[in-house]
Amino acid sequence: MVYLCLLLAIIAEVSATSLLPRTQGFSQPLPTLLCLCGYLLAFALLAQVVRVLPVGIAYAIWCGAGIVLVAGVGWWRLKQPLDAAALLGMGLIVAGTLIIHLFSRSVPH
Rank of each mutant, 00 (worst) to 15 (best):
L45R: 05
K79N: 14
W62T: 04
P108G: 04
C5W: 06
L34K: 07
L36E: 00
V2H: 09
M90V: 12
C35G: 12
V14S: 05
A12R: 13
T32L: 07
A16R: 09
V68D: 01
F26L: 15
A84P: 01
V52W: 09
S18F: 12
C63V: 15
L88H: 09
L7E: 00
V94E: 08
W76T: 14
P81M: 03
L40P: 08
L30K: 15
L53D: 01
F103G: 02
P54G: 03
G89P: 03
H101K: 10
L102Y: 14
T97S: 12
I100W: 11
F103N: 07
L30W: 15
Y3D: 03
E13V: 03
P29W: 15
S18N: 13
I93W: 09
T97Y: 07
G38K: 02
P21L: 09
T17M: 09
S18C: 13
I93Y: 11
S18V: 11
F43P: 01
L6N: 01
M1R: 11
I10W: 07
Q48M: 14
P31C: 14
L7N: 01
F43I: 05
R105L: 08
S106F: 12
I100A: 11
G38T: 05
M1C: 08
I67H: 02
R22S: 14
L78C: 12
P31R: 13
F43L: 07
A65E: 06
V55L: 05
A71G: 07
Y39H: 02
L19K: 00
L34G: 09
I67L: 08
I93H: 08
A95M: 14
A58Q: 06
Q80P: 02
G74F: 13
G96P: 03
I99K: 04
G72A: 02
C37W: 02
L82E: 07
V70F: 00
S106V: 04
S104T: 04
V55S: 03
Y3A: 00
S106N: 12
L45E: 07
P21W: 10
L88Q: 08
R51Y: 00
G25M: 10
G91Q: 02
P21E: 10
V73P: 01
A85E: 00
S27K: 15
C37D: 00
F103Y: 14
G96F: 08
L6K: 06
A86D: 05
V70T: 04
S18Y: 13
L41A: 15
H109P: 08
S104R: 05
G38S: 09
V52K: 09
I57K: 03
G96V: 02
Y39K: 01
L30S: 14
V52D: 06
G74H: 13
A85Q: 00
V14K: 02
V107R: 14
Q48H: 14
V94R: 06
P21Y: 11
P54A: 07
G56W: 08
C5I: 01
H101T: 03
T17D: 08
C35K: 12
Q80V: 07
I10Y: 08
K79A: 14
